[in-house]
Design a protein around this nucleic acid. Structure first.
Lengths: 148, 148
DNA sequence: TTAAGTGCAAAATCTTTGCAAATGT
DNA sequence: ACATTTGCAAAGATTTTGCACTTAA
C-alpha cells in the first residue's frame, strides 16, 4: 500500500522531470487525482476536490502546462466543458496522440477513454487532409446502465 | 436574385412556424447568416456580424431555442467554442440526428459538416450502450490547403 | 542563488437572469 | 389583446493577467 503509493509518486516525479517541470506538491496532487479517476475529470470537478489546497488560478495553469507538455489530454464533454485524462502512451510536447475513442455518458456526463476500441478509417472528400480523428461515442455508461 | 432571396426567406418563415417560433427579424437574420456560411459558425463570430443589429443576449437565446427545436445543431471546435450549423434533415425537438462526420480545420478552426462521409461502425465494451456517434476529423481544409 | 511556480487581487470574458418595452399572431 | 420575443441592466460564472512571495533545483 505505502509502497505502491511511493512508486506512483516516484513515477509522477519522473514524469514531471522528463517534461522539464518542477516537482511541486500541487502538481503531484493533480496527477494523483486525475489518475485515481476512471473517467476524465473537468476543471470544475477537480476544483471541488483540491480547491481547499490549490488555488483556482494555479489549477488552470497546471492543467494547461500538462496539456502543453502532453501529460494529459483534453476532451470536451457534452456541455463543452473541458475534461482531462492522462495521456496513455506517446504524447509529447505540442504533439498529442490521443487516438482512441472517447465515450461520453449522456446521463452522468462522464468521459471515458476507450483505448481498446479500434479506430475506424474515414474517407474524406478531396482536398481535405486528415491529421487526427476525435471520436466521441455518446450513450449510457456501465454505471448508469445498472441504475436504470 | 430577388426571387431566390424571397424563396429562402419564405422557407425560413415556414421553418420557424413549423417549430412554433414567431417569425421575427432577428431570427430570420440569424438563419440567413448561418446558411450563408459553408462552415459552422460560432456565437462570437455571429456576434461580430450581427452585433450591431442584434443584442448579444438575444443571440444566445435565439441559438439555444434553435438548437432545442432541432433547427441547428451545435459542434464544439478545437477550442471548445460552440459552433452552429443547420440541421440537414430530420432533426426534431429534443432529438437531433446530426449523424455525420465533422471536419475541423486546425489552421482556420472552421467546422464543416460532411454529410457525404459514411459513419463507421464502432464496437463498444460490454455494458456501454451507444446512442450516437460524434466524429470530428481534424486536419487541413481545402481552403487552407491552397494557401500552403 | 535564481528561475519557475504559487497565491492573491483584480481585470477581462462569457453566459444567465429579471423585467419593462416592443412585436408577431 | 395576448403571449412571445427583444433589449437593456445587472448578476453570476469562467478564464486570464500582473505582481509579490515562496519553493525546487
Amino acid at each position: 500500500m505505502t509502497k505502491e503509493k511511493t512508486e506512483k509518486s516516484k513515477d509522477f516525479t519522473e514524469l514531471l522531470r522528463e517534461n522539464g517541470l518542477k516537482v511541486t506538491s500541487p502538481r503531484l496532487r493533480v496527477l494523483n487525482e486525475i489518475t485515481h479517476k476512471k473517467a476524465a475529470i473537468s476543471q470544475p470537478d477537480l476544483e471541488k476536490i483540491v480547491g481547499r489546497d490549490i488555488d483556482r488560478v494555479t489549477l488552470y495553469r497546471i492543467l494547461s502546462s500538462f496539456e502543453e507538455k502532453g501529460i494529459v489530454h483534453k476532451i470536451f464533454d457534452l456541455n463543452g466543458t473541458a475534461t482531462y485524462a492522462m495521456c496513455t502512451s506517446n504524447c509529447t510536447e505540442n504533439h498529442h496522440h490521443d487516438q482512441h475513442v472517447h465515450f461520453i455518458c449522456s446521463v452522468c456526463n462522464s468521459v471515458y477513454c476507450l483505448d481498446e476500441v479500434s479506430l475506424p478509417k474515414i474517407t474524406l472528400p478531396r482536398h481535405f487532409a486528415l491529421h487526427s480523428l476525435a471520436i466521441n461515442a455518446v450513450g449510457l455508461c456501465a454505471n448508469c446502465q445498472k441504475e436504470n
